[in-house]
Computed example of a mutant assay.
Amino acid sequence: MLVWERPEPPSRPVPASLSRDRIVRAAIRLADADGLEAVSLRKVAAVLGVGPMRLYGYIASKEELLDLMVDAIHAEIRPVGDDWREVLRSLAETTRQAAHEHEWLCDLLGGRPQLGPHALARGEAVVAALGAVDVDAVMPVVGAVDAYVIGAVRREIAERRAERASGMDQRHWQASLGPYLERTFATGRFPALATVVRDAAHLDADETFRIGLDFLLDGIGAGISR
């Protein structure tokens, strides 16, 4: 039986009352502070002031705990809008926001199917907004948006982590590479790249995400209208 269907044990006030929600919230606090490597049943139990064995009445494994953590964050992803385009845009933006607020989420998105109640509620809202779309196209459309968001946020989070590790923000990192790129482009071997680097607008992450999403939604719209 999956964790979503398995009943919790009866509440015990001594030595400390527990619930899956309290366990998951404690795990999320650990992950928000120090990443997924900081999450273990032993550490979560310590935060809650109980022995690790108490947790096994509620959660069978760390994998179940990770599934519950991801589903809890899906409660923050509530797409809204009056048509399919607005809902898909909201889906993308709220997923990206959740990933930036809970950096560890990008390491778990796109993994095992998310079947918890909050993930299913998110899916229901999105699929309902695509009611006019051919039923065979619904999942490819949603999958395309999810894939775009996952790829974008993983790149953004990877850049953030690299900045922390190097101690340089993106502007200083680009400046440090400037002389190398100038020498390389001067060879004439990469004329197309040189034109883009020198002449194209240098967009920030928000603008890059928005423009890329616009291209994707335009393509979806063209496909739907055919």
Score class of each variant (00 low, 15 high):
159 E>Q: 15
96 R>K: 14
152 A>F: 06
207 E>Q: 15
4 W>L: 04
23 I>K: 02
190 F>K: 13
11 S>V: 12
52 P>M: 03
12 R>D: 14
97 Q>G: 09
130 L>P: 03
219 G>S: 10
86 E>G: 08
53 M>Y: 13
33 A>Q: 13
215 F>D: 07
185 F>W: 05
217 L>M: 10
223 G>L: 02
95 T>N: 11
195 T>V: 03
143 G>E: 09
177 L>Y: 08
212 G>R: 06
135 V>D: 12
78 R>D: 15
143 G>P: 04
104 W>M: 03
106 C>I: 07
5 E>L: 15
139 M>I: 07
95 T>P: 10
213 L>E: 13
107 D>L: 15
223 G>F: 02
48 L>F: 03
48 L>G: 01
58 Y>K: 06
75 A>P: 12
97 Q>L: 14
12 R>K: 13
76 E>K: 14
119 A>M: 02
146 D>P: 03
5 E>A: 14
182 E>L: 06
164 R>M: 00
203 L>A: 13
31 A>T: 08
35 G>I: 08
47 V>G: 01
165 A>T: 14
97 Q>P: 01
28 I>T: 04
106 C>Y: 08
182 E>K: 11
210 R>T: 11
64 E>D: 06
203 L>T: 05
11 S>K: 08
120 L>R: 15
226 R>C: 00
61 S>Q: 04
163 E>H: 09
176 S>V: 04
171 R>S: 13
214 D>R: 13
169 D>P: 01
99 A>K: 07
81 G>D: 01
173 W>K: 12
3 V>Y: 09
198 R>E: 04
126 V>N: 08
59 I>S: 02
37 E>P: 07
84 W>C: 07
182 E>D: 11
52 P>F: 00
147 A>I: 01
66 L>G: 04
152 A>R: 01
15 P>W: 07
128 A>P: 09
89 R>I: 11
170 Q>E: 15
47 V>Y: 00
54 R>T: 10
170 Q>Y: 11
23 I>D: 02
148 Y>R: 01
166 S>D: 05
105 L>E: 08
53 M>L: 07
65 L>W: 02
185 F>T: 00
60 A>G: 12
20 R>Q: 07
